[in-house]
Design a protein around this nucleic acid. Structure first.
Lengths: 303, 303
DNA sequence: CCATTGCGGTACAAAAAATGCACCACCCTA
DNA sequence: TAGGGTGGTGCATTTTTTGTACCGCAATGG
């Protein structure tokens, strides 16, 4: 939609922090860009950038303008999506920010299932930590967030929530594998590998450990749960993950055991969107499918 | 804002029902207009007008596009208003659709009071019946509605409400003027002049009369409450109006008496806006002032 | 301390886009 | 069947936008 071009340029300038850089990014001359910005400011009635030596920065008015643009763009794409729906084309794009645990099993299955019915719908899936996922909802960078233990910013609206207990991941021959349920102290006493602090699993572990005046002291700390799953095969230590990110391997080499609820409360896996936003048709339908799938999944692991 | 020009043209075409007429209205050639519309449809990905012999009409997709435009325009003007507020200019425009009763006394006083503090703010005030007022909120044609007994469409959000009893208006020498409070049957038995059916006062009267198996049979039926107030001076009949549209004249020629609540329940005078819409700063502030004024007014007539 | 570098901004010509004019095919109506 | 209305289109013209080459300025780095 060409009538939003100026806003796209404004966004690029805000991102680049410099008109000349932004001009390069947008394949345009700096002079043309400068004039578009200046003309917009004149027409709009106020400056939207602070001119600093060495670049520019959005001022508060500019923040408002940028937010208006993002809301407009989002609403327009919603309209286009609804129109495509009207015409029976059922096209669209769904953009999701999610925790790592959803990557290996849950989301691939759900996306494939959705695309089987609506082949015209495309997806973007990005791993984001709890804060990032919510921030991207607010900037209309993604339509949905599916995160473990979100931080609950003001604009976060919960669509569906299921509880998930933190599980211990280890080799089948690990001493602790014999027990059906583990105590937190056993886990902390044995060598362990843990995710870094910005993830919900670690957050819950830290909180529970501190309550028992203990500390999580991982021998390896990582941002990758995939690393955790694979590392425990090579060195016989324990790792942590939530069940939705785990599946018994065919060779039985890995086992998972929940940590007793006495020590560690269940965390929440939450599907959310930006508060008050009208999602595009495809995203809204997919969110509904996800909510159903989460509900069924939760029912299945409880039975 | 020039980037919305195409949408303005679309709106004009939708209003005119013909591209050539719209082209005339917008001081542009039909050819230019046709090409802009066609280019927009190509870019948008779908037709937004039905081509009929003898003109064009918005199709459902077009309705969505037009609604998007109105929402966008409204949000943009909200942003501009907020920015002006940031800059301490305190400019803006407030657009109100209201019932006739508010015209003579209440709104002029409140608007003057507001403008005394914010001289940069301009107003448009239009008399609308109950359905129109709400419909104009939905199309972003007005920011606020202040109506007696609204019909409550889905998108109507109540900001403040006060009860108002239907009053009888008559000359001081009318026989019924002797009583402090009138019964409905007395009013229906005496010659009366009444507003037409689309107004809340008549709606309440009709409803109450039918309950008593009676009929409102006005000797003059009018859409103008001003006519009612003046007519009862010339022919000694009774008329109806709500208190907020009435004030004792200096010469004591007119008197007002409430109809007993046993016969006629109080109606609601309601200040509302479009559901979920973020109003421009000036409109939001004025709505708050109106709510306070209504509350004070209600308290004063009860004491 | 002065040359260099990168910044936003601007004059002028070239390129691109929008517009106006004349005209077409079409459909309804008188 | 003729006439007036509709949406749509080729072409020359006008308006707008862009690119090139600059300017003045402030920070930076030898």
């Amino acid at each position: 939609m060409r009538h939003l071009q100026t806003f796209r340029l404004i966004e690029a300038v805000a991102r680049a922090g410099s008109m000349r850089k932004a001009a390069g990014d947008m394949n345009i001359t700096a002079s043309a860009l400068v004039r578009r910005i200046n003309r917009f400011e004149a027409e709009f009635g106020a400056e939207i950038f602070e001119r600093l030596p060495g670049g520019v920065r959005l001022n508060p008015a500019g923040e408002l303008v940028l937010h208006h643009y993002r809301a407009t763009r989002s609403d327009l794409s919603r309209v286009q999506s609804q129109v495509a729906d009207l015409a029976g084309e059922r096209r669209g794009h769904v953009s999701i920010g999610c925790s790592q645990a959803l990557i290996p099993y849950f989301l691939p299955r759900e996306i494939a299932k959705y695309r089987a019915e609506h082949p015209g719908v495309t997806f973007s899936v990005n791993v984001r930590d709890r804060a990032q996922a919510e921030q991207e909802l607010a900037s209309y960078s993604s339509d949905l967030a599916l995160v473990f233990e979100p931080v609950y910013l003001v604009d976060f609206e919960v669509v569906h929530v299921i509880p998930q207990a933190v599980n211990v991941v280890m080799r089948a021959d690990h001493p602790l594998a014999a027990k059906k349920e583990l105590r937190l102290r056993d886990c902390l006493d044995t060598p362990h590998i843990a995710p870094s602090a910005k993830y919900g699993v670690r957050h819950l572990l830290d909180f529970a450990a501190r309550r028992g005046t203990r500390n999580v002291s991982p021998l390896v700390e990582t941002e990758s749960f995939e690393l955790i799953r694979h590392y425990v095969i090579h060195e016989n230590v324990i790792g942590f993950q939530i069940p939705i990110g785990l599946r018994d391997p065919a060779d039985g080499s890995l086992v998972f055991r929940p940590i007793s609820e006495r020590d560690l409360p269940d965390g929440n896996l939450i599907l959310g969107q930006m508060r008050g936003r009208a999602l595009p048709v495809a995203s809204a339908r997919f969110a509904m499918q996800l909510a159903t799938a989460l509900k069924d999944y939760d029912a299945s692991i409880r039975s």
